[in-house]
Structure formats: structure tokens, C-alpha cells
């Protein structure tokens, strides 16, 4: 990874008149944390990084940033937003374009071929976090943790994030500028998490999810972190009609999680943000990946690969599967 080239490119991009700001990553304030970094002028690029801890999907901010009404007499700021994307993040951008959530010409996409990211929780189990932000890089297949003088090689298999183990598109599917060489997609293991649940009896599956959904505190971080959950008027915030009661209990939590997973069916790009941000460890990715697999295997469709594609749930084929219909 050529950090100098990244920073130089970023400085050029933010200096453009038609770019409002650039969203990248910077080192966090402690441990293995990395924070999204909003750069408005070339001075900000010195903090910009790209490391195996840059797991957050920044495409979320394209729709998360509030668009306030423009005061009378003022012009709306129509400058572009520049964004660093990994393979999965670029799929979110493509899917947003498909859904007309954003316009292609409103973003400058800087693609970063991604060799795989670390699940910091796995790393912290082996090497606890400290109050100093750690420096981590890639070393061949593996990861390299630098702590002062000490350099520790961490085998890839030990700390690679689950979504990266299952990743089929490590290279950005769209970008205006690409930094670094494309990476060779790696062999993808079977999705054991989903298969494990499918192998259970219905009652066991129910018990499994009952335990998981009961933990939910409805902080909505999964919804907010998702680059594709961007409805301005979310059904979960509605009071009339009220779809999911505000009460936090197993019944309402289940309704919420079914709704969330369903709304992402045929749209989810498997960036794993929902699961990553969950403070109580609900394996939300399994719900999404189950539906994504159905869509891939039975309809031959993968969202977020082609910005010109038809949205999956707003299109059909006359010969779609219907064996379940009486």
C-alpha cells in the first residue's frame, strides 16, 4: 500500500473546486480503532491512512449526512463528495446509484483494492488494546502489528474479518481513481455460519434467533451503519401507523430484525457493517447473507456489481421460481 500516493491523490482531489470534502480513514484515539476522517482541505491528508483496520464502510455517509433546506437567497452546495472505497464499499456505492439514492456524477470514487481487513475484536483477544492507537499493516498474506520497537506478524487466518473470508469482490467495482494494484480474489470458504443454522431443526433455529433477538437493545446502530438503510422516513420511526412498537421485547425485536433483513434482500452488498457495529453481538450478517445467497443462487443476481442494473425487488422475470406457490 502506497500511503504517499494515497495522500498525494487525496490532496489533489480535495483541492479541486468541484469537491466539497473527501471521506477517508484516520487512526483512532486508542487501541485498534480507526475513525472516519472528513477532509476539507489539503492539510487534512496527513492524517489519512489505509490499513487493515479501515473496515468501516464510508459509503454510508453519502446518505447519512443531513441535507438541510437551503436558506432563501443562498445557493445549494452542489459540489461532489470524494470517498475512499474498498471492494465491498464500492458495491454499496453502485447499489446506491442503481436505486437513485445518489447520482454517479455527485461522487468521486477513489478505489482501494483490498487485501482483507482485520476483525479488531479477534486481534484484541490475542493482543489487548492499549491507550495508544496501534499501527498495523499488511505483510504478504499476513498482518503486521507494530508496537514501538516490536513487530509482530499475525497470521491472516487468525484475525481476518468474517466478511472478508467470504468476500468475492475485493477490488472496487467502480472508481474514478484507483490506488494500488488490483488484488487477486482469494478462494472463498463456504458460509459456515449460515449453513450451520440451516442444518438445525426449525425449533432449534427459533431458539437460536430468540436468544439473539432478545439481546437487542434497539439502538438502531445496525440500521444507521448500513449504507443501504437510508429511507428518510423509516418505518421504525413511524408512529402512525405503528409497524413495530417502541417496546423492547422479543416480539417487537423480532419484527424489527425481520423487517431490517427483508428490506435489504437483493440489496445487501455484504459489507458486514450491521454486524460489526452491534454492541451486543447479534449475528445480523447471517440473515443478510442467507437472503443474498438465495438471490444469487436462485435468481442469478448479485447487487452492487453494475450501477446500470435494475433493482432486484423492483424487477422480475416471467420465469422466476414459483415452486412454493399453490
Amino acid at each position: 500500500m502506497d500511503l504517499d500516493k494515497l495522500r498525494k491523490t487525496a490532496a489533489e482531489v480535495v483541492s479541486r473546486d468541484d469537491v466539497k470534502y473527501l471521506i477517508g480513514w484516520r487512526r483512532g484515539t486508542f487501541g485498534y480503532r480507526v475513525a472516519p476522517h472528513f477532509i476539507e482541505d489539503a492539510a487534512g491528508v496527513d492524517e489519512l491512512i489505509f490499513s487493515p483496520l479501515c473496515i468501516a464502510n464510508l459509503a454510508n455517509y453519502l446518505t447519512l449526512t443531513e441535507k438541510l433546506p437551503v436558506p432563501r437567497g443562498q445557493e445549494a452546495d452542489t459540489r461532489k463528495v470524494a470517498l475512499l472505497v474498498k471492494g465491498c464499499d464500492s458495491r454499496a456505492v453502485a447499489q446506491l446509484i442503481v436505486e437513485k439514492g445518489i447520482k454517479r456524477e455527485d461522487v468521486v470514487v477513489i478505489g482501494m483494492p483490498c487485501p482483507g481487513m482485520i476483525d479488531w475484536k479477534l486481534l484484541a483477544e490475542r493482543y489487548p488494546e492499549t491507550d495508544v492507537a496501534a499501527e498495523i499493516g499488511w505483510k504478504g498474506e499476513d498482518f503486521l502489528l507494530i508496537r514501538g520497537e516490536e513487530e509482530i506478524t499475525i497470521p491472516r487466518a487468525e484475525v481476518l474479518a468474517e466478511k472478508c473470508r467470504l468476500c468475492r469482490h475485493p477490488n472496487p467495482v467502480l472508481s474514478d481513481i484507483t490506488i494500488g494494484e488490483a488484488v487477486e480474489p482469494w478462494a472463498v470458504a463456504e458460509d459456515s455460519g449460515v449453513a450451520e443454522i440451516e442444518a438445525k431443526e426449525a425449533a432449534e433455529r427459533w431458539d437460536y434467533w430468540e436468544e439473539q433477538f432478545s439481546k437487542c437493545i434497539r439502538c438502531y446502530s445496525c440500521r444507521n451503519a448500513c449504507p443501504l438503510c437510508y429511507c428518510e422516513d423509516c418505518i421504525l420511526d413511524r408512529l402512525d401507523p405503528i409497524w413495530v412498537n417502541r417496546a423492547v421485547n422479543f416480539s417487537e425485536n423480532t419484527a424489527f430484525h425481520l423487517a431490517r433483513a427483508f428490506h435489504l434482500a437483493g440489496r445487501c452488498v455484504e459489507c458486514g457493517e450491521c454486524e460489526r457495529v452491534c454492541p451486543v453481538g447479534i449475528p445480523l450478517g447471517k440473515l443478510n447473507r442467507k437472503l443474498a445467497r438465495t438471490v444469487r443462487e436462485e435468481y442469478g443476481f448479485e447487487p452492487g456489481l453494475d450501477p446500470e442494473a435494475e433493482p432486484f425487488q423492483a424487477s422480475f422475470k416471467p420465469d422466476d421460481p414459483e415452486e412454493f406457490i399453490l
Partner: peptide, 12 residues
């Protein structure tokens, strides 16, 4: 079809 799959997956 997707809803049916989802319900089944959650144990309904």
C-alpha cells in the same frame, strides 16, 4: 419467496 425463506431461516 424471500420472505418465506427468511421466516424459515429464523425458525418459523
Amino acid at each position: 419467496k424471500l420472505l418465506k425463506e427468511l421466516l424459515e431461516f429464523t425458525g418459523v
